[in-house]
């Protein structure tokens, strides 16, 4: 029997993973760039929560909004300063750039804050337990699910019913042609980075919330999750990322239960081995998207 607790946990974890994956795919879809700096946007939001929550009297909800906004802003800045100048060069130059930006932001946190982790204050209600459908779980998990549903609906509306959304989908399909229709390249790319940062920021609230602490390397694990989820779901569509996130959440929880204690430390290796196998068997992921592999120049 699968307990309702398992279902709630899996849904909550899957939701978080879906958001993480979605943020990566927004940029990938348009630029075909696997953005290694993505995890650092999450770190930026985490440190914002820490600084504002610890040193200022700003209420927690405003802190969270500011954290998300700052993550989006930093994401936009990295696009403006680092990615835009190399965009017309080569895909690998962009890839190496994203890795360098990631290292840069991590080490800025190391240098200017501390290598040690910092406690992040959260409202106590966040981690109180509630009972839903017979399952006892922290409020945070329920919030994760609800937030994800709201965000997914909002993003769907944005992508389907606004010109900007349609233009972004068009750009992900055929970038140059989209420009020929008068859609500015910089606009869609910037919006993609802002949305990516925004999602990283929201994820950060729940991710940091689980341990109530932040450290310079906090972005690495979510980055890997985004990789795995997008590979499982498919890099070429936003739906694929969401599906991949939930499948990965399920896989992760299932492996945690099923692996014997002696092998549990190898869980990550198992996960990645599954991913590699998956890639070899089905390189396009579960969801085949309509996006082409056209490079952005």
């Amino acid at each position: 029997m699968i307990g309702s607790e398992f279902i709630i946990n899996t849904l909550s974890l899957g939701s978080l993973y879906a958001l993480i994956a979605l943020g990566l795919v927004f940029v990938y879809g348009i630029l075909k760039l696997v953005n290694f700096a993505y995890g650092e946007y999450l770190m930026v939001a985490g440190y914002t929560l820490y600084v504002l929550g610890t040193f200022t009297p700003i209420p927690w909800w405003l802190t969270m909004i500011l954290a998300v906004a700052l993550a989006a802003f930093v994401s936009y800045l990295t696009e403006l300063i680092a990615f835009r100048p190399v965009r017309t060069k080569s895909l690998d130059a962009m890839l190496v750039t994203s890795f360098a930006v990631s290292v840069l932001l991590q080490n800025a946190a190391l240098l200017f804050v501390s290598p040690r982790s910092r406690a992040v204050p959260f409202p106590p209600a966040f981690s109180e337990s509630v009972t839903v459908f017979g399952a006892t779980t922290p409020v945070r998990n329920i919030l994760t699910i609800v937030t994800t549903v709201i965000l997914l609906v909002a993003l769907t509306l944005l992508m389907k019913y606004t010109v900007l959304g349609i233009a972004m989908r068009a750009a992900a399909d055929k970038f140059t042609t989209t420009r020929l229709m008068g859609v500015p390249a910089n606009l869609v790319i910037s919006v993609a980075f802002i949305l990516s940062g925004l999602l990283a920021g929201v994820v950060s609230i729940f991710w940091v919330g689980r341990s109530a602490s932040v450290d310079p390397l906090i972005g690495f694990a979510p980055l890997l999750i985004a990789f795995i989820a997008t590979v499982i779901g498919g890099m070429h569509s936003l739906q694929g990322a969401v599906v991949g996130g939930y499948v990965y959440g399920l896989l992760f929880n299932a492996l945690s239960i099923m692996l014997p204690a002696s092998l549990i430390n190898y869980r990550d290796a198992f996960m990645f081995a599954i991913v590699i196998l998956f890639l070899l068997l089905r390189p396009e992921g579960l969801i085949r998207g309509g996006y082409t592999e056209e490079r952005v120049g």
Binding site: Y28, Y266, D268, L279
Partner: peptide, 28 residues
């Protein structure tokens, strides 16, 4: 052998995933 067929994003992610697998094995 199978990895060399992959290119672009998928290849990058796979090679990166392999590094992680190596690292987990080395540390465990």
């Amino acid at each position: 052998w199978p990895l060399m067929r992959l290119s672009d994003a998928v290849g990058v992610i796979t090679l990166f995933a392999m590094l992680i697998v190596f690292h987990v094995i080395m540390t465990q």
